[in-house]
Design a protein around this nucleic acid. Structure first.
Lengths: 113, 113
DNA sequence: CGTCTATCTTGACAGATATCGAATCAATGC
DNA sequence: GCATTGATTCGATATCTGTCAAGATAGACG
C-alpha cells in the first residue's frame, strides 16, 4: 500500500486488454486455467524450455528437474490440457511444442496500450 | 495430441519472450506467483474490473461476486501480494488500481515475435 | 465516547494440487 | 515372445487454496 500514484492511474486511463475484453464468467474459467498452468515455477520453466525450441523431447525435459518422471508427466499434461502446448509420440520418444496462439491470446490480454 | 504441425514449429522458430528470457529458478518463482494470481476465475475477473477503471472501490467489487467480504479481501490481497495491483484507504473506503508495469512484464514474456 | 459501516484478519474445513513410487503402456530390439 | 527403455497413469499422502463465519480494525458521524 504505497502512497505513490502510478501514471496510468493519474491519467485516468484504463490499462490493457483485460480492461476492454469481455471477461465473462466462462471466459474467465478458460483463461484462468491457462494462467494457472503457468502459475507454477516448474511448469513455467518447462514452458520456457519448450518455447525455446521448435520441439522438445520429454527425455530432455526430465533431467532438467529434480523430480520423478511421473511428476514431469503430470505437469506436461497440465500444460497440454490448458492448451499451451501440444505433443506427439514419435517412436520411442514423445515431443512437446508450444502453441503460440495460446500464448498470444494471454499476451494480448495483458498488453498495455 | 493432434497431428497438426503448427507453423512456428514447422519454421523451426522459437516463439516468444519466454524462449529468450532467462527464466532461472528464482525468476520462475516470482513470475509464477504473478501468473498464479491470475489463475483463478474470480481474481481474473477482479483484475479485469480494476484494469477497466483508473481505480476501483472495494465496495464496487464486492457486489459483483457472490462471495463473502472475507473472501473478496483474500483475493484482493493475493493480487496485491503478487504485485499486480496496489491499494490505498481513503476515508471509509479502500481503492485498488492496476500496476501496469507488472502486467506489461507478463505480456512481454508471452508475446510472440 | 459510542455506534455504524466498510474492510481486513483469523480459524476452520472441504476440496484441489504437487509429489513420489509402483504399476502400466508403447516401441524397440534381441 | 521377452526384456529393455521412455513415458504415462494410478494410489497414497502432505500441503496448499478457496470459502465461510465470526471477530477485529479503521474511519465517519452523532
Amino acid at each position: 500500500m504505497t502512497a505513490v500514484v502510478p501514471s496510468a492511474r493519474a491519467a485516468g486511463a484504463t490499462c490493457c486488454g483485460l480492461a476492454t475484453s469481455p471477461v465473462t464468467a466462462e471466459d474467465a474459467e478458460r483463461l484462468a486455467r491457462m494462467f494457472k498452468a503457468l502459475g507454477d515455477p516448474v511448469r513455467l520453466r518447462m514452458a520456457a524450455m519448450i518455447a525455446a525450441q521448435p520441439e522438445l523431447c520429454v527425455c530432455e525435459i526430465t533431467p532438467a528437474f529434480d523430480l520423478s518422471s511421473g511428476t514431469i508427466s503430470h505437469h506436461l499434461k497440465t500444460l497440454r490440457d490448458a492448451g499451451l502446448v501440444d505433443s506427439e509420440r514419435r517412436g520411442t520418444y514423445v515431443y512437446y511444442w508450444i502453441q503460440p496462439e495460446a500464448l498470444g491470446t494471454l499476451s494480448a490480454l495483458l498488453a498495455v496500450h
